[in-house]
């Protein structure tokens, strides 16, 4: 297995692009936040008439919303990042990684030519691809010292 060649040949559409949820551009920040909480979702692709218009992530929540209650009533279009960098379905994993590195971004939405959403390429997509290359990864192959497991899903 050659991982590099794999990344360069793997079409993004073959990867796990499910790390997102969507919200309409007419929603308020509070509504989007509710949706993020309900689905444990960290990246929200904002659509206008079904087409990608912007992106809103947990980092935006941290930076703009968490200690600013006034933001909650605002339309999401005020706080989202408009016109994010995207790639087409024909791109490869390596393309997406290069784009991430270049712009220091964590999300690369994959879109059709008409900008309707195909999926969202994130760190999780990359790591899942990696994990598939090593199907025999198993916990406990070394003596972990603090053998502690979080009882909650949101460990970190």
């Amino acid at each position: 297995m050659d991982l590099l060649a794999g990344l360069k040949q793997e079409p993004v559409t073959m990867m796990d692009l499910s790390d997102y949820c969507t919200a309409d551009i007419g929603a308020t920040v509070q509504e989007v936040l509710n949706q993020m909480q309900a689905h444990h979702c960290r990246h929200v692709l904002i659509t206008k008439e079904g087409k990608l218009a912007g992106i809103f992530t947990d980092r935006d929540v941290l930076l703009k919303v968490a200690d600013n209650k006034d933001a909650l009533g605002q339309p999401i279009s005020e706080l989202m990042t408009p016109e994010p960098w995207t790639l087409s379905k024909a791109a490869t994993a390596a393309d997406a990684l290069a784009l991430m590195a270049r712009h220091h971004i964590r999300n690369v939405p994959i879109v059709e030519e008409d900008r309707s959403i195909v999926g969202n390429f994130t760190h999780l997509s990359v790591l899942r691809f990696l994990a598939e290359q090593f199907p025999d990864i198993s916990i406990g192959s070394y003596p972990v010292y603090p053998r502690r497991f979080s009882r909650r899903r949101h460990g970190g």
Binding site: L127, I137, Y145
Partner: peptide
């Protein structure tokens, strides 16, 4: 939280990040 030792393998980290 789960704390991994420095000598844990990178693949182990990949596992936690994807599975959990």
């Amino acid at each position: 939280p789960i704390g991994l030792p420095l000598y844990a393998s990178v693949l182990e980290a990949v596992h936690f990040m994807t599975q959990r």
